[in-house]
């Protein structure tokens, strides 16, 4: 993979120059703050809105730490997946469309390095954003509810990051197979739906990336999480398979 380091530096510089890194980090930070706040104050808001309908007020449960973790995971899984698709959808397709990929590849760099640098840069964006979200989410949960074990919360964030990298890698594959960012995003969304359907199946489901959220929740709350290794291994395998398929397709493409 000649030229990987150079291309990675170029990609990371581009992520900051185009402000993508900052935008994704800010969006993740927003949801990290909103989640524990919503868990804490939504019942109060509902009670205030219910007003005189006091019979409703009794039905609203008292918010707990688990609610804050649930909100955090729900929001960041949904918007994180959206961010992962947006980050990856045009990464190769747009460069092919504009001819910049052909220009870069006239330099002494391999196609494998070209692809790997892009995928690693996206994973880095998601890592920074997830880390920012993790720190803020942990702080707000500690202030509004109680302190959770740092190791468990960090493990939750690591699993969340891995699940987002899976969505990014599948969209990245879509972006490599086509010459349009929209088509790349479409393929990413199709993969997202397919893995979502497969994850609902009784036996296979527990090994799919979607089941990482269930494990992540248990780890954060210090509950028995079951086996984490299997879904982690499957997720890593999906990322590597997507990268390999992208390379197999890209190395034969006419640019």
């Amino acid at each position: 993979m000649s030229g990987f380091g150079l291309l990675l530096r170029k990609e990371l510089l581009e992520q900051t120059r185009t402000m993508r890194l900052y935008v994704v980090a800010i969006v993740f930070a927003l949801f990290a703050i909103i989640s524990p706040l919503t868990a804490k104050y939504l019942p109060d808001i509902v009670k205030a809105l219910a007003g005189s309908q006091l019979s409703l007020v009794g039905l609203i449960p008292t918010p707990t730490t688990a609610d804050a973790v649930d909100q955090f995971l729900k929001n960041l899984t949904q918007f994180g997946a959206l961010a992962a698709i947006l980050l990856a959808m045009g990464t190769v397709a747009t460069e092919k469309e504009r001819g910049t990929a052909a220009f870069v590849l006239t330099k002494p760099v391999s196609r494998a390095a070209f692809l790997a640098a892009k995928l690693v840069a996206i994973a880095t964006d998601l890592l920074v954003a997830t880390a920012v979200a993790g720190v803020l989410g942990y702080y707000y949960t500690a202030v509004l509810f109680e302190s959770l074990p740092v190791g468990g919360y960090a493990a939750m964030c690591a699993l969340l990051w891995l699940s987002l990298v899976v969505y990014a890698a599948l969209t990245f594959l879509g972006s490599t197979l086509t010459s349009s960012a929209a088509a790349g995003a479409g393929i990413g969304i199709v993969f997202l739906v397919v893995t979502g359907i497969v994850s609902a199946l009784p036996t296979v489901g527990q090994y799919m990336p979607e089941s990482l959220a269930v494990r992540a929740r248990a780890l954060a709350l210090g509950l028995p999480s079951g086996t984490v290794a299997a879904p982690v291994a499957v997720s890593v395998a999906i990322v590597l398979a997507a990268a390999l398929l992208a390379w197999l397709s890209f190395r034969r493409q006419e640019l």
Binding site: V23, I26, V27, A29, L30, I33, L136, V143, L144
Partner: peptide, 16 residues
């Protein structure tokens, strides 16, 4: 103090 960072981040995103 807990909501203020939320407002600041929203404004930062909008201004960017």
């Amino acid at each position: 103090p807990l909501v203020l960072p939320l407002v600041v981040l929203q404004l930062a995103l909008l201004l960017l």
